[in-house]
Design a protein around this nucleic acid. Structure first.
Lengths: 108, 108
DNA sequence: TCTATATTTCTAAAATAATGGAAATATGCT
DNA sequence: AGCATATTTCCATTATTTTAGAAATATAGA
């Protein structure tokens, strides 16, 4: 993880619609089709496509095609790297009482 | 934590300069004066002030005045809330193998 | 009071991002 | 082939954000 990548990822989720999309995927056990995301969040297809592309380019989600359907899921590994980067070396390194630096928050 | 607050916080750190500022503070054991931040990151004073205000309004940093100096530190509690919100109910809730939902990443 | 230092506010130009309708593409079904 | 469904690309408009110099404000010390 480096600053450029982190900023791109943060920018991707720093948006009402995209954060909702990302959280929907994070909270889903399985991948979700674009059309189902659109229905769940009431986002027009072209707008959704734009946002999904942003999340994808940021590396936060992955897509799998199945016929006409595009199934999206979160890239949990990339997401955990981002979280780790944000808290990296916190409190000056040694002294942080409850630092869990290497640890994943969600799956891995 | 709710979506609005989360988006504001994420937008605050979704910027190269502001992420560097925030990480500098997170990694510091003590509060840092605005001038020292400016020097460390080579950011013009007015630009820095603009960014510090954004981080403050997002609730991610706090400031304490001492004479002419403004000392900034991260709001670790708010930051941990943000991280918790992002991973909330992940993998559909029950099934996530390594979910540490209530846990803080960095101090608390 | 006068001067130096620290920081913020004001400003206006420049850059970047978001929106959604219409058209295009792609797949599947009959 | 012809039609329906799923999704993306194109586009122009609109809105928001970023930048840093100059001026303003605030505090400290001589």
């Amino acid at each position: 993880m480096n600053e450029q990548v982190a900023v791109t990822a943060l920018s991707a989720i720093a948006h009402e619609g995209r954060l909702a999309i990302f959280r929907l995927l994070v909270q889903s056990a399985d991948a979700v089709a674009a059309g189902d995301i659109a229905a769940a969040l009431a986002i027009p297809a072209s707008t959704l496509s734009f946002h999904l592309k942003a999340l994808q380019q940021a590396g936060l989600i992955v897509v799998r095609q199945e016929g006409r359907f595009m199934y999206y899921s979160p890239n949990r590994e990339a997401f955990n790297s981002l979280l780790a980067y944000l808290t990296e070396n916190c409190c000056g390194g040694g002294g942080c009482p409850i630092a869990h630096q290497g640890e994943s928050r969600c799956q891995a």
